[in-house]
Amino acid sequence: MHVYPIVAAAVWGTVSGLLLPRAAHRLAVPSGEPWAAACPLGHPLPPGARGWLGPASCPDCRTPGRRYGRGPLPAVGSALLCAGLAAATGPHPELVVWLALVPVWLTLALVDLRVFRLPDVLTLPAFAATAALLGAAALLPSHQGSWTRALLAAAAVGVLYFLLFLINPSGMGFGDVKLAPTVALPLGWYGWGTVVAGTFAAFALGAVVGLALLLTGRATRKSPLPFGPFMLLAGAATLLFR
């Protein structure tokens, strides 16, 4: 096992995880509203905190520098996921693509959990960038995947989610449809079996969590449940344990 790529990936995951809480907060607004420019208590963000990258904290709250993000959890989760991907992938060019996706996927999961939406400002550029980077990785001799298959998988899974959206618009958001090709790209890079496993795992996770919420009385059959986190978790887990 190559130790240095794993350590470097963990460092990248820690740094990117520390920088994503502000973006998650600013993007976590209902559809059609401008990006958040105040803390949860309504204090306007200071000029130095209006960018997209950095911790989510408010100097005007009762406790100076009060953080309203998720504390160290995003950084820890990002570090562990990046290190795991480095260990599973090895020193191959596609690892750079997976590491670049981690902070984007984590931000999307946090936003979807908070406001049940997957912003186009992340999903659409993520697809274009992932496809382009995998195309570049495919030109290098040490890659271990297929760019053509990745694109075909993105198209196939995108069509599947679109059909599910047409059949049951109340059960499948259009943001999920737009996210699906991005999740399918890395799965298709490795094979159709990986695509099937990752896609099925997303629906299985959603079903298990939904059933658990019903049985514990924390939700009803009409309660909304964000599906994006299940897609992202299943995709990441499939990459880790393929």
Rank of each mutant, 00 (worst) to 15 (best):
Y4H: 08
R221K: 13
A10P: 04
L99H: 07
G42L: 07
P64C: 13
V183D: 01
P55D: 08
L99Q: 08
G206R: 06
R62I: 00
V104C: 11
A56L: 09
C39S: 15
W12T: 13
A236C: 12
E33A: 14
L18W: 08
P46R: 11
C82G: 10
V102N: 09
C61N: 06
G17I: 02
L214H: 07
F200A: 15
L41Q: 14
L134T: 08
I167N: 07
A201L: 15
G32Q: 04
L239S: 10
G206P: 10
Y4F: 13
V11Q: 10
M231W: 02
C61H: 07
T130C: 12
R218A: 09
L124Y: 05
W192E: 09
L166F: 12
G193K: 03
Y4Q: 13
H143K: 02
L20V: 13
L139N: 11
G206W: 05
Y68G: 05
C39F: 05
A37V: 11
L122R: 02
Y190L: 12
T107K: 07
G54H: 07
L41V: 06
W98R: 13
A9S: 12
L41K: 13
G217E: 05
A156D: 02
W35N: 10
S31L: 12
H25K: 09
L163R: 07
V195N: 08
R22P: 01
W35H: 12
A88G: 07
V15R: 11
P181Y: 04
P226D: 12
T216G: 05
G13N: 04
S223T: 15
L124V: 15
G71R: 09
A24E: 06
P169I: 02
L187C: 03
V115M: 06
L179S: 01
A150N: 02
W105M: 14
W105H: 12
F174Y: 14
S146A: 10
T123E: 02
E33R: 15
C39D: 14
M172N: 06
F116T: 07
G235H: 07
A184D: 00
P91I: 12
T107F: 07
L19A: 15
V209F: 10
T63I: 10
V11R: 08
W12Q: 11
T148W: 02
G188Y: 08
W12K: 03
A237P: 00
L164D: 01
L133V: 11
T123M: 00
S170R: 13
L139H: 11
P59F: 06
P169F: 13
A129F: 08
S170M: 09
V3S: 11
T194F: 00
A79Q: 05
P5H: 10
T238A: 05
L45F: 06
S146D: 15
P181H: 02
A155W: 07
